[in-house]
Design a protein around this nucleic acid. Sequence first.
DNA 1: CCATGGTGATATGGAAATCGTATCGCCACG
DNA 2: CGTGGCGATACGATTTCCATATCACCATGG
Lengths: 305, 305
Amino acid sequence: MDRSLIKRFGHFLAVVEEGHFGRAAARLGMSQPPLTAQIQLLERALGVKLLERTRQGARPTWEGELLLPAVRRLEESALAVEALAREVRLGKRELVTIGCITSAMFATLPPVMREFRRRRPETVIAVRELDTSDTLEALRRGEIDLAFARVERDVFPIRKQALAPDRLIAALPEGDPLAALPEIDLVMFANRPLVMLPRAISPAYFDGVVTACHDSGFAPVPAREVNSGMAQLALVASGLGVALVSSGMAAFSPPGVAFRPLTAPVEAVGVAVAWNQERESALTRELIEIAQDIAVRPGPQSEIS
Amino acid sequence: MDRSLIKRFGHFLAVVEEGHFGRAAARLGMSQPPLTAQIQLLERALGVKLLERTRQGARPTWEGELLLPAVRRLEESALAVEALAREVRLGKRELVTIGCITSAMFATLPPVMREFRRRRPETVIAVRELDTSDTLEALRRGEIDLAFARVERDVFPIRKQALAPDRLIAALPEGDPLAALPEIDLVMFANRPLVMLPRAISPAYFDGVVTACHDSGFAPVPAREVNSGMAQLALVASGLGVALVSSGMAAFSPPGVAFRPLTAPVEAVGVAVAWNQERESALTRELIEIAQDIAVRPGPQSEIS
DNA sequence: CCATGGTGATATGGAAATCGTATCGCCACG
DNA sequence: CGTGGCGATACGATTTCCATATCACCATGG
């Protein structure tokens, strides 16, 4: 979208709230004719008639009503940015914060935490469950010091160290005929709705799934998008589709979901330890070392059985 | 805020993502000098320096980093409006968005989803995993239409209908001596570090835990705080403490965690269905009715066995 | 030490966008 | 039927934003 339009959504909101072009114009500190013109430009750009002009003033059309909540959220987002900028304009304890994706929560994280606590019992560790893209963002901002996530490559200033390879497995609703099989040929998913995480959350996961499907000769049929691995499995449990998930998710054994290996194993980007090289500290270096040591010689806890 | 600024946030994002004014300008279809000028105007308007210019390019300042999440949300809001306008232009599609806390993801949600899908197969349902406080916020903002969360009471405009009572159970690291017991007397937790969710995330949970401990004659010894139920269990699995969790969390069977009932049952605020009465629709009313019907006569899926 | 190249910044003129003002078209209402 | 109030059109003025030319600075390599 041409971002110039965003300004005009403010105009649209003003007219809706006032129910009158003249009063809305006054509120916006402009005269009525250019306001009319701006609204007309907006309607042309969107290809949607937003306002019904009547002798008694203006009110939103049905289409305008549908857009209103989203336009209000846009307005609220703008106000939130403004408020935050004001706060920023107008200010850390020996604490390490680790961000961790859900699928690594019980395989990668616990052994690292135990070893670190053994070495430095006095250091406080906070854990935040985040998705991969959120971990990158949080690392950049310094909200977390370290992350266990599916980071594919270094992106300055974020560095990563791969810990172990991973693979995708199939998740189906219990009772699904395919669940009777010991393993799944991916081509069986060709006509099934596939519940996926958006690419923005984990590009490595998303691209891996799309590639695997294409390699099996079909394009994935996207079902609903969700915002977390748990929501993804919940939709599978609800019978709304099947999914490809990283093997770590099987650790949760959620009710209503059956996991099956794929006949032709599909590699996935494994969990890596990631950190911000511009915010490196002795603590983070030590945690990285521990994570690497544990990856080299895994204990029983880090294996799926 | 002058809404003209919003356009410039897009410029800011482009520079952050490219790390280079020239490449960002190319991406935005403009030349580099006016982009520099626009960013400068934005910085002056906000009174905040957003970018650090170096010989290697540009990267966000600390203040810029702090604003980034809000700016990204603004961008997402703009994209959402655009996408919705496109959908509206092409013909209406019915969509319902449900927010759900993790512990209700596999007990409360799936039967409701199945029944709703049976009745209205053409309606699209989106699911978002959120914590209780986030669901209230999302309901107010209209980002979700309905929520399954531990909402204790109505807070205008949010209404809630309790679905079923719940209780707290003990979560201990496997191998912990107490895990050998069939049930736990809560007083045994008196000197153990207790991993808890912050009160902001779920006041009902937090107050329930504190009350239960006091009723057993001790004050809880707080261990680390976490941002999600999964992170909470991960810390338990890591041996960093014990926890009291809602019975729904046992559904996950995470490795390294043993669940035990409490000798004296402790009631917890149960999952409720919540909605925004100012945004009620036929679809949300139907979902509420389904949830209530299922709560009155639960099927096998909604019980912990 | 110095020349060079690449970064963002400044200067300038022109095009495009947006505005205010004047006025129009339409029609519900008295 | 006249009138007044609504939004729309027309037009010139002003502001905004752009491309281009060039500059200032400095890390880098010879």
